[in-house]
Design a protein around this nucleic acid. Sequence first.
DNA 1: TATTTGGTTCTTTTTTTACAGAACCAAGAA
DNA 2: TTCTTGGTTCTGTAAAAAAAGAACCAAATA
Lengths: 153, 153
Amino acid sequence: MNLSEKQRELIERIGVFHEHKGMQPLVGRIIGLMLVHEDAEVTFEEIVEDLGVSKSAVSNALNFLQAKERIVYHTKPGDRKRYFKLKIQNWSDELEREIMDITKFKEFIDEVITERGKKHVEFNSCLRDFSNFLVFFKKELPLLFEKFKKEHG
Amino acid sequence: MNLSEKQRELIERIGVFHEHKGMQPLVGRIIGLMLVHEDAEVTFEEIVEDLGVSKSAVSNALNFLQAKERIVYHTKPGDRKRYFKLKIQNWSDELEREIMDITKFKEFIDEVITERGKKHVEFNSCLRDFSNFLVFFKKELPLLFEKFKKEHG
DNA sequence: TATTTGGTTCTTTTTTTACAGAACCAAGAA
DNA sequence: TTCTTGGTTCTGTAAAAAAAGAACCAAATA
């Protein structure tokens, strides 16, 4: 698509952001490219050209993104190319899942609580407090998402 | 402290959980050890012995955890050793920060919106929707944390 | 049937991460 | 003053992650 310097740099920053979430560099950059691309969709070879990476790397990255349900592709009649685009409709669900994953730490805390001796009363009580907070949080979070859906979308 | 097989295994799982957040393996295991340890605090050499790792690795990991304000240490009179423990009191603040970090993605979306052409109306409108959701979410999240603090702690 | 296209898979290479080991340093203790 | 202790720093290295490259495959085309 002949990206401007500004676009390239934005793609890089979006890439780094996703690296921090544990994604591999190219995966993040592909997300960036799809966001920035004027057509909002890209083909396999466009990625290879625009990001200057190998076919194998692109193949793996795209399959990963599909497995994670972050992208989908469609095809056009008489054209064997796949046109990939982001599944942005489900981003709020994605966000909810992501936050819920963080709260899975509660499982460990509870296990620690039952496993620990009674010795350190204050520490144990801190752990219980946080566990209780997570119970509260896990209950409230979905309500928050619903609230928005009612008020808006 | 002579850890049981069960404790070791729990430490490993807590370690892996933290690896998924981008921490390096040893850092996660140290957090696990501090959680499981009956004294709720550990010394430098205890970590070296219990986790079977080098002094340099421990030194780096502990300095990292201090820089991130995840641990603190105190000393005992006539004892040069440092006793490290988790700052668990601030875990809910930590969680709030962590979630807020995720929502920083809004900055990129907004930048993408201003940078993109008007061509793909639906895609653009999806982006705006999600950006608006994040505005809502960033406003509501702190209220949720406050709500708990009022109702409980 | 041979060739091109779009993409996959397998192996190799490069790069980065995570840690080990040794030398080192400062503060007490002997 | 020398030695020990608790910890740091620097350099090397093993292992893992990320990507390259080439061979490959299936579908469509010539």
